[in-house]
């Protein structure tokens, strides 16, 4: 029954949880990725660029400090430090007096925004409902490279890093039907990226291979992603940063600052296989076999680019 999936080398949830996450990711290392404030501090230490932190709100009475924190910044992002799956994130495009306008055009009054922050601090968006902190940080200005193939939302690049080797990558492009969200099963478009060349391959929408973006009609295959080497190196360095053997690294491309590490994930999803049109297992096996000796992030990236080169 499962022969076809096995032949395609598909890694499913059970295998990911038992064979990779349980073995490669020791529990005590999770805080480094689950707490985004900690991730950001570690990234700063290891020289991995990340969006600048304007401030963190840890208690309800801190909320009134927000206007002061963002006085110098027209746009900013609020996100829960322990959030997951993008829940609770608010991107403010501009603000004047007590009115905050999100990038999708919704206007928050000060009362609404502080209620949202209070919920966030009380743990509505955190795993397990624990009290949380709200982060206020730099809002990424997306590089225009994806402008033709992105409908609203955030185009982000996900790289799976196994034992420090980037093994697979994709870019997630929101569509009209995904309502600006980047989740593949909600209708976002995923496109695998060739690790060697940084060019997109195999656009996948739902369960179909496609070549053009459904809303803009532009080609999604063959887009060349700038700073690709730099991105791979950043991703590979995240292994030293966290110590986690199986890691998902989320990157965005800022128009001015180049690639920025947005967040890390100790339980990265499996849809990256769909975006690439191929399973992860054989690549992971390959790395399991050759992993020997200490190598720098740059050496690992070079190796992985040799192994996983797609046909031009």
């Amino acid at each position: 029954m499962f022969a076809e999936l096995r032949k395609a080398g598909v890694m499913a949830l059970n295998a990911r949880n038992a064979d990779f996450i349980a073995l490669e990711n020791p529990r005590q290392l999770y805080p480094a990725v689950d707490n985004k404030l900690l991730t950001k501090a570690l990234a700063l230490k290891h020289g991995v660029p990340a969006p600048e932190l304007y401030g963190a709100l840890s208690a309800p009475h801190d909320i009134r400090d927000l206007p002061e924190l963002v006085a110098q910044h027209q746009s900013f992002v609020i996100k829960p430090a322990h959030g997951s799956g993008g829940d609770g994130i608010v991107v403010i495009d501009s603000h004047r007096k007590d009115r905050y306008r999100t990038c999708s055009g919704r206007i928050y009054s000060w009362g609404e925004l502080s209620h949202h922050l209070a919920n966030m601090i009380n743990g509505q968006f955190s795993l397990g409902g624990h009290p949380d902190q709200a982060m206020v940080e730099y809002r990424v200005r997306f590089d225009p490279v994806f402008n033709t193939v992105c409908y609203l939302g955030v185009p982000d690049i996900r790289i799976i890093v196994y034992r420090g080797y980037p093994v697979m990558s994709m870019v997630r492009l929101p569509t009209r039907s995904s309502d600006g969200k980047a989740n593949l099963h909600q209708g976002a478009l995923g496109a695998g990226i060739c690790l060697a060349t940084g060019r997109t391959i195999n656009g996948v929408l739902g369960n179909e291979f496609i070549e053009e973006h459904p809303d803009t009609g532009m080609a999604v295959v063959g887009i060349e992603i700038p700073y690709w080497e730099q991105m791979l190196n950043m991703a590979a360095r995240c292994y030293e940063l966290t110590g986690l053997g199986y890691l998902g690294v989320d990157l965005v491309l800022d128009a001015q600052r180049g690639p920025l590490m947005l967040e890390l994930n100790a339980r990265p999803g499996l849809n990256i296989q769909i975006a690439n049109g191929r399973g992860l297992i054989s690549r992971l096996e390959r790395i399991r076999q050759v992993d020997a000796g200490e190598k720098t992030a740059e050496e690992r990236v070079t190796l992985t680019q040799e192994w996983f080169r797609h046909a031009p």
Binding site: L5, I201, F209, R283, H310
Partner: peptide, 17 residues
């Protein structure tokens, strides 16, 4: 998983490793 990953049982348009 049969449903979720059914696209992977087809050959991808871009060959590769």
């Amino acid at each position: 998983d049969l449903r979720r990953f059914r696209v992977l049982t087809r050959n991808p348009p871009t060959p590769g490793p």
